[in-house]
């Protein structure tokens, strides 16, 4: 009895598999005809319809106005930039500093004279390097957080490891400098002045807050941020805020970074007049 029942179950299962397998084969055999037929009907009755285009419309695109990178020749419809630039303009720290969530790219916009120059640093220095001042206790009302900074280190985008020096030059590095906190076990971690969950909560509730509440919440959120950020002159001078040598820059580069050329240019009260270049090049001589 029992055996028979078992056998029948097996047979039934076998039949089921055989049946569904046959069905699958039938579907595979007939599907191309169906698809082809539907495509033809689509062409006759909906001539303007492009399935691929509709799919790509549905795809999420994070920043619609972002410049198409012009280096791949196929993309070269240059409505955004005249000069041929490379893909580096689109590279940014990974993961991006929490600040970018609200302030976006090119966060500096108040100081019109130097905003582009300040933004230039975003490619390789995280916000907290300048906006959480190390040794905050020396400043009245300064955030305590500054005291926790143990070192400034490069964090490599691809691997997430900390390094004292990285390959690259002139803002084109595969890493970002972060203020790093070393805890009692000797584990190094990025010092984040703002908690991500708090920031998200703030974004959620901010539309419902009145002005006072909003200001208070914003102030609370930015508690860890130094009122007086590190300024240009603090770094670009001898023995400045950042130790360029420690960060792996060559002697020559460091000399350049703290030279008069830089410091003079970044002094925002001063305007430098560039001499008009007189062209001394001679016309090409033909033989």
């Amino acid at each position: 009895m029992n055996k028979e029942k078992k056998a029948s179950i097996f047979t039934r299962a076998f039949r089921m598999i055989k049946k569904s397998g046959l069905f699958l084969i039938k579907v595979i055999y007939l599907l191309p005809f169906f698809v082809f037929g539907l495509w033809l009907l689509g062409l006759v009755y909906f001539p303007g319809f492009d399935l691929n285009a509709s799919i790509s419309l549905l795809r999420y695109r994070p920043e619609p106005q972002v410049l198409p990178v012009v280096i791949p020749k196929k993309e070269a419809v240059p409505r955004d930039h005249f000069h041929m630039i490379d893909a580096y303009v689109e590279k940014s720290a990974k993961p991006p500093p929490i600040c970018v969530m609200c302030h976006g790219r090119y966060a500096h916009d108040k100081e019109k004279k130097v905003r582009a120059l300040l933004n230039m640093h975003e490619g390789f220095i995280s916000c907290s390097v300048c906006h959480v001042r190390k040794g905050g206790e020396n400043i009245p009302d300064g955030p305590r957080l500054g005291n926790e900074i143990s070192a400034f280190l490069w964090r490599v985008w691809a691997t997430g490891e900390f390094k004292k020096a990285v390959e690259g030059e002139y803002g084109k590095y595969p890493a970002t400098i972060f203020p790093v906190k070393v805890n009692e076990q000797g584990i190094r971690q990025i010092l984040t002045p703002i908690s991500e969950s708090a920031a998200r909560r703030f974004l959620e509730i901010s539309p419902e807050l009145n002005t006072e509440q909003f200001d208070a919440a914003r102030a609370k959120l930015h508690e860890g941020i130094s009122k007086e950020p590190v300024s240009c002159n603090d770094c670009h001078k001898k023995d400045g805020y950042l130790d360029f040598i420690q960060l792996g820059f060559s002697r020559q580069r460091v000399d350049h970074l703290i030279s008069n050329e830089f410091v003079g240019m970044i002094n925002k009260d001063k305007t430098i007049h560039l001499p008009s270049v007189i062209d001394f090049r001679e016309a090409p001589q033909t033989e």
Binding site: I85, V89, L117, N119, G123, F124
Partner: peptide, 21 residues
């Protein structure tokens, strides 16, 4: 101008890139 991130947003939201390779 050789720094890739040299740039800003205009008042009307246009992105300005001042980078030169």
């Amino acid at each position: 101008h050789r720094y890739p991130n040299l740039g800003r947003y205009d008042e009307d939201g246009t992105r300005r890139i001042y980078y030169i390779n």
